[in-house]
Nucleic acid binder design. Structure first.
Lengths: 337, 337
DNA sequence: CCGCAGAATGTTAACGCTAACATCTCAGGA
DNA sequence: TCCTGAGATGTTAGCGTTAACATTCTGCGG
């Protein structure tokens, strides 16, 4: 079986039709299950399809139907744990719904780079676009987004001009901060993410307002870039600070760096310093000490993102901001030891 | 500017042609730069293009040219650091060359799932396929791969039936093992990857043969699943073993788990135990202690993979196996402290 | 002032598919 | 016997683009 036409070219509907002795439309009907076909004919057609190893040409189909069956994802830094997991969730949901996923990444966020990426995808005839770029500039770039293309964002802020699926960063930060306050600390310090990341800003706001709500002093913020290196640097400059015995670090990688700095400085965690991270990367449970952190369900975010996008592709107009609730995972870095 | 046609539908070549008062072919020539066009005409056409916010329909173009400008990537576990970085490298190189990248992931590797994924991409009319699935089953699945579709694999073994780009795992393992032997250890233990991962097998072979070459005893192998959890489990069961004071762990995550187990058991690293990992994830420098490891340049692998694929898409027939040389990064986990 | 090369443009026919409508076949009731 | 209608199939016309060839303009040498 699986013989191809003599020239080695892909067989077309017409080839199959000729071999089966029917019209190309009958073949089309067999393939798509549209319209009635006599059982005997169906068998003949299917045999011909197998003999020629025929596969439908999705490009031709897309041209005539106007639907490419493809969605596009614009991603920033796909090798970060969060974005990669989200992408994975989106791709999975899309695949189950019969959509292919085209990605295009951007090295540095910015109005034009995001707009370029969207334009590239649009040229690729995607039916909808997901932007994974939780950046303040991303929000602005999306304002200029074309109105005729369904587009949703992951992790955008409240003011985003497009529908957004996001983990509730604010609430996660609140939980982390209250957990530390609940352990009896006078206040909680914060190693924040970059200024232009919405998620970082939300976490920072959640931390700050929680402190204020509890009447705690708000210490100065140290800012990192999400990397362990920057967390380490923050730790080096912070350790020894007066009244510093509890820190909420804006992600797990930076928390790891912070822990490292504590270790080097001979500061015992959690004895003299308690640390909470954010994300719950799979390694967090094996840090020294195991890290208390806020778990984000990225795969769920990806799933919901696709669902929302699909509703929009089908003409839905909802602008809601859908929040996934995070969960605090308590480990030794805030335990009693 | 950027006014669309009254009905809100995308403008086509014909619409532009009508507005500019030329034939659609002239517009096509202006867009693609094929054939001569008078400067004045070009201006008129470009104006019309802008007025209508015209963008070429890549689907129609793909239908007539037979080239979709898209390549497909089959990936397993995209949220692992290595695959994600490789994907990123491929996508970057592809984008620079004007190709779009469609991904499809598979949850568990196997003959049929990989074949399915390839078939899905083929239906999406990709021009070439990259398989990132360094699995023994992947190799077998690729034997059945269609001959008319350019296909290359990342990280396959020597016996793979398709061209392969890979980091030289064997050499990396050799370096790691010799580094430990060079520090005066009688032998080196090994926490290996899963049995069905080619990379794991190559690392294991590199380790074993290096020991044999140096006349060292070859201790039994403990096998993990790449996760920190499994590395921890390996550590728990291994620590205390007689003559165990140097371990080569097959990746950094497992090494982290192993370090954790040592810490819990009160075994000092590097004082009583020396540990080497593999990958050099960005966090490795901030583990406790900072991890000596073998760096893989995944982005380079991605780049070379795309280059190879492109050569194949242009009709090249090379079957060479291209190896990227890894580098040993020495840190405290094998230092003197 | 003609003719002719080359530049500039136009016309036609695919590419492989689906939508829409047209035709054919046959059973069953008038 | 003829008509009717539904089931089964066929025909035609695009979708928006490029390839290939045809035609129309230029300007310039003879």
């Amino acid at each position: 079986m699986a013989r191809e036409t003599a020239e080695g070219k892909q067989a077309s509907l017409t080839d199959v039709a000729a071999l089966a002795g029917v019209s190309h439309m009958t073949v089309s009907r067999v393939i798509n299950g549209t319209g009635p076909v006599r059982a005997e004919t169906r068998v003949r057609v299917n045999t011909a399809i197998e003999q020629l190893d025929y596969r439908p040409n999705s490009v031709a189909r897309a041209l005539v139907t106007g639907r490419s069956g493809t969605l596009g994802v614009v991603a920033l830094e796909v090798n970060l744990y969060g974005p990669a997991s989200t992408l994975s969730g989106i791709e999975h949901a899309a695949r189950e719904a019969g959509y292919a996923t085209t990605i295009t990444s951007i090295s540095r966020p910015g109005r034009s780079s995001i707009a370029d990426a969207v334009e590239r995808l649009r040229r690729q005839a995607v039916e909808g676009i997901v932007v994974i770029a939780p950046h303040v500039t991303a929000g602005r770039a999306l304002e200029a987004a074309p109105g005729d293309m369904p587009l949703v964002a992951v992790g955008g802020g409240e003011e985003a001009p497009v529908p957004v699926i996001s983990v509730d960063q604010y609430d996660g930060a609140r939980r982390a901060t209250e957990h530390l306050l609940g352990l009896g600390h006078k206040t909680v310090w914060h190693v924040a993410g970059p200024e232009d990341w919405l998620e970082g800003l939300d976490r920072e706001r959640g931390w700050r307002e929680t402190l204020e709500r509890h009447g705690a002093r708000v210490p100065p913020v140290i800012r990192g870039d999400w990397s362990a290196r920057s967390g380490y640097a923050a730790g080096r400059s912070l350790v020894g600070e007066k009244g510093l015995d509890a820190v909420f670090v804006a992600n797990d990688q930076m928390a790891l760096g912070f822990l490292r700095a504590c270790t080097e400085a001979g500061v015992n965690v959690p004895g003299e310093m308690r640390v909470v991270g954010f994300d719950d990367v799979p390694e967090a449970a094996y840090y020294t000490p195991p890290l208390t952190t806020v778990r984000q369900d990225f795969v769920e975010v990806g799933r919901r993102t696709f669902d929302l996008l699909r509703r929009r592709m089908n003409g839905g107009e909802e602008r809601a901001r859908d929040l996934v609730v995070p969960e605090l995972i308590v480990r030794e870095s805030t335990g009693i030891s």
